[in-house]
Amino acid sequence: MGAILNTLPLKDTDNLSHLSPNRADWLTSHADATGLAVVEVERLWNRFKQLTGSTEHTHLYPDNNALPNELSNDIFVKNLLKHFPRSKADPNSIPFGYFLLVMHWFDEASINDKLSALFIYLNNGDAIDAAMIAKLLKHVYRETKDDDIRLLSNQFMQQLGATDQGRLNMAQFIAGVQRCFAPGELEELLKFEIIPGHILEEANAVPSLQSSSSNLRDNNGIAASDLVTESHMKQIAHQASRRNWTKLAVTLGFLEYDIEAFIAKNNKDSSAALLELLQVWREQEGGLATKRRLKRCLEQSDLQDLAPILN
């Protein structure tokens, strides 16, 4: 994967490494250099801060510094970061600009390119065999017996069309995956959107920033009355906590271990856990934390009867 990602126009962001995130043009400068919209850069800056555990660090040091919270125990996140391009000036670091370019690539890459990168990610570009797949499955199905893991890995290899030697090269892997999945299903599985299309459309209704040359949007154009308030979140948390509210958390973009962490932090108090989760969501989304978006999420989570709270 590293070989693919190192073909990105990394030099276009090198001159941003000295900028402070406190500067007024922090988001717009990175947006212009990467071709992303300012709302996308803002979303990714919030994610980058989660990785560094800091609101000021513009470089991530995945080899030297432990990732915060549950991310430190996620082998897939750690392995993925190993493939990210590193700064020539500071070889141990991933600058924020490089992080943006990689995320942009994940958003726009073709199915073939994504499968090629996935193949390289799995075994550093070497042929895949059943033993390697077994190691991977062991991280996914941690309570499954070794014999069952071996059976699953052999079935995986057979379905993808492994050779008599029981190995898959890149071309065989790509062909096998495309053969096993319907095109639409495969596209959905590999889809990565920095910001979902319907949200970006909402942002596009806001006037562009005059100081920027790319498709940037000014979140200040959204009226304060359109944003979710603390009162809204408290009411939703109180009522939704009595039901299956984890579906709402997933719809808002949180992972299972995020939800478990909020529950543990709040001593299994569902109402308090959901309120904190909503507060984190509002902080991360900034000007995009609108009542309209939260209403849509409530509807998708079978909590549509709570939508009137946001009227």
Rank of each mutant, 00 (worst) to 15 (best):
Y141V: 00
F181D: 02
Q172S: 15
K191L: 14
S208N: 15
Q158S: 15
Q165Y: 06
G197C: 02
S153R: 05
I195D: 00
Q210M: 13
R142C: 02
A171H: 13
R150V: 13
L168Y: 06
G197T: 08
N169H: 06
K138H: 14
M157E: 01
Q165L: 11
D164I: 13
V140A: 02
F192S: 01
A205W: 11
M157F: 05
I149N: 04
L190P: 00
G161L: 04
L137Q: 14
L189W: 06
Q158T: 14
L151I: 02
A203L: 08
L189Y: 08
K191D: 08
V140M: 09
S153T: 11
E202S: 08
C180G: 02
V140P: 01
D148N: 07
A182R: 15
V177W: 06
S153H: 10
L151Y: 14
A162R: 03
L152R: 11
R142Y: 03
D164L: 06
Q172N: 11
R142L: 00
T144W: 01
D164Y: 01
R150D: 09
D146W: 01
E193T: 02
R142E: 10
Q172E: 15
M157K: 03
A203V: 05
Q158L: 12
F181V: 03
Y141I: 00
I194Y: 11
L209S: 10
V177Q: 04
Q159I: 08
Q158V: 13
L160E: 00
Q172P: 07
Q172L: 14
N204H: 15
L151H: 10
L152D: 03
Q210Y: 08
A203S: 13
Q155K: 13
P196M: 03
E143A: 09
P196Y: 04
E193C: 03
Q178S: 15
